[in-house]
Design a protein around this nucleic acid. Structure first.
Length: 288
DNA sequence: GGTCGGACCAGTTTCCATAG
DNA sequence: CTATGGAAACTGGTCCGACC
């Protein structure tokens, strides 16, 4: 059902329509995505792997922009329940499959909210086996286990422990803010875990960092008057790492202007770069 | 100029009623 | 009984004005 028409202001002719759920991105934004796709094809990386931790790869050519931020967060969290064949199971030992009716309990939301979540992911992101009720993640987006190195550059690596701990310690209202950053995964630098314009640049001098002001643009904030609120919220997003509290992301800035702050994501949640030493240094920023 | 905080509006979530 | 629609409550974003 069309809710709004797109009309040529000169001829008055109707040239298209906008439906509920459609997403509008600017020409500038679209050009950058095209450019980044090209960059991706020109780079490859050697992957650093964490100490026997479980993780899932998420295809970064998908930015989940057709989902609401809180839905993205739920989906990423749910993906940590995937087995190696992308079947969703409660835990690795019991192999008990997750059914649609289990979702409210796992996601920690009401039945109705779970139903709405399901309605937005069922078309593409998660497949339900009609006979058995088993749930499968779309393997174009999610992959567990080994990747062929040829395509490795296209994936971000999420750690189960970090994502789960983060999801559980952020109460429901903060799931939106987690989602904002999950949606920016295509813009996160592979080596340094900072939000930036050129995510494949390994040389720190050349990384074009994104400021809080740019971040507001990306996530659709109309002005920058909420930066200080955003800062407080992201500073307050803490989760448990081996018994110690850590921040989800670090906002670093020089001087007094927080509008120029840069955003760096805690590598305990996701990290795909190659250099373990860099990761360890990054971790310093997330301590209490 | 920038930051902060309150008021208002819009979007989300929950709860309940109703249909199937 | 489950699935869906809608009202009410709640949360988050914008606007705007006060205060550095």
């Amino acid at each position: 059902m069309g809710e709004y028409a797109i009309v040529d202001t000169e001829t008055g002719e109707e040239v298209g329509e906008i439906n509920s759920g459609d997403v509008i991105i600017s020409v500038h934004e679209r050009q950058r995505r095209v450019r980044m796709k090209k960059e991706r094809e020109e780079h490859e990386i050697n992957r650093y792997r964490g100490k026997g931790e479980r993780y899932i790869f998420v295809n970064t050519t998908f930015d989940f922009s057709d989902l609401s931020p809180s839905t993205v967060t739920k989906l990423i969290y749910l993906s940590t329940y995937a087995a190696y064949d992308n079947l969703l199971i409660l835990n690795a030992k019991s192999k008990k499959e997750i059914k649609r009716s289990d979702l409210p309990k796992i996601l920690g939301v009401s039945k109705r909210t779970s139903e709405r979540f399901w309605n937005s992911v069922k078309a593409y992101y998660i497949r339900e086996d009609e006979e058995t009720g088993k749930l499968w993640l779309n393997d174009e987006i999610f992959k567990r286990g080994k990747l062929k190195s040829k395509t490795a550059i296209d994936y971000q690596q999420f750690y189960f422990n970090g994502v789960r701990s983060l999801y559980k310690s952020a109460n429901g209202k903060n799931h939106n803010y987690l989602g904002y950053l999950f949606q920016l995964i295509p813009f996160i630098n592979r080596e340094w875990n900072v939000v930036c314009e050129n995510p494949f640049e390994a040389d720190l001098d050349n990384v074009q960092l994104v400021t809080m002001k740019d971040f507001c643009d990306y996530i659709g904030y109309k002005d920058t008057s909420s930066i200080s609120k955003l800062k407080k919220i992201y500073d307050g997003l803490e989760f448990d790492v081996n018994g110690k509290k850590q921040r989800f992301c670090a906002l670093t800035y020089t001087g007094l202007d927080s509008g120029t702050a840069r955003i760096c994501i805690n590598p305990e949640v996701f990290y795909v770069g190659s250099n373990k030493g860099r990761v360890d240094v990054l971790k310093l920023f997330f301590k209490e």
